[in-house]
Amino acid sequence: MTRQKRSRHRLKRTVAPYLYLSPSLVIIGLLMLLPMVTVISYSFQNSAVLRRDSSFAGLKHYQAIFADPVFWASLWHTLYFTCISVIFHMTIGMIFALMLNSDRINPTLRNILRVLYILPWLFTAVIIAVIWRLLLEPNGVVNSILMQLGIIGSKIEWFSSPETALHAVTFANIWAGYPLFMVSLLAGLQGIPKDFYEAADIDGAKAYQKLIFITIPQLMPIIISISLLDFIWTMQVFPLIWITTGGGPIYSTEVLSTYTYKLAFSSYNLSQAAASAVVILLISLGLTLFYIRYQKAR
């Protein structure tokens, strides 16, 4: 190669990656980063989009939200819903993964069960919501089984009484979300070297000791990163709650996303909704920073 040709080649190598990335960066920039700036600016305007009045409103909308008891209730419901969901996703996912990984069951059965245990994952949130509404209808199958077993005395209105609604939607979400943990932990279990367990056998370790001292520490990186992602995603829940309870009865299942949605599209107060959306964004960003730090440290 001549010198001229070589330098042209080098120039191409420097410019090329940016060209390949440009369509993605344009889309992410225009449709993700710019809207984030927009939502922040909406939250400081007197009235955004509808009845447009873009004069500066200061912190008015933020003050309105923080003074609203429904906002704080929504925040609490979101935390409850998310924490309980993640804990149970992890526990059930772990138990199922350990059961399926056991060499006590025959391989054909294992493969069949693995497919069936993943089932809840294959259904859209809307469909999951509809299924659980049918199951938990006052005249539905869950009530009738529980009554036949003598566990409850009368029909319970799971989704329409304020005492049970939040637990019921959380339960439905637990059912819907454990397979992500199960699949990831199952893959993790298969990656643990067999000689760790053989060495423990020679030392006479009991099954629970192997679980605590080998299996769980080996799976820890997976457990932590999936829990963080699950936490971030579960916090953003919308369709499941929208379809089962719509945030009711009397705000008892209102979460941050339904609260924000109603501000925007039922009260048409887009500026105040923008303020609430910014608060959600900040919480998510905090968790994301934590997640990225963890991924980098790994």
Binding site: P35, M36, V39, V278
Partner: peptide, 14 residues
């Protein structure tokens, strides 16, 4: 991890 609800409002405006 950006919450969809956060983008929904500016998208609606756009």
């Amino acid at each position: 991890t950006i919450p969809p609800i956060t983008l929904l409002i500016p998208f609606f405006g756009l």
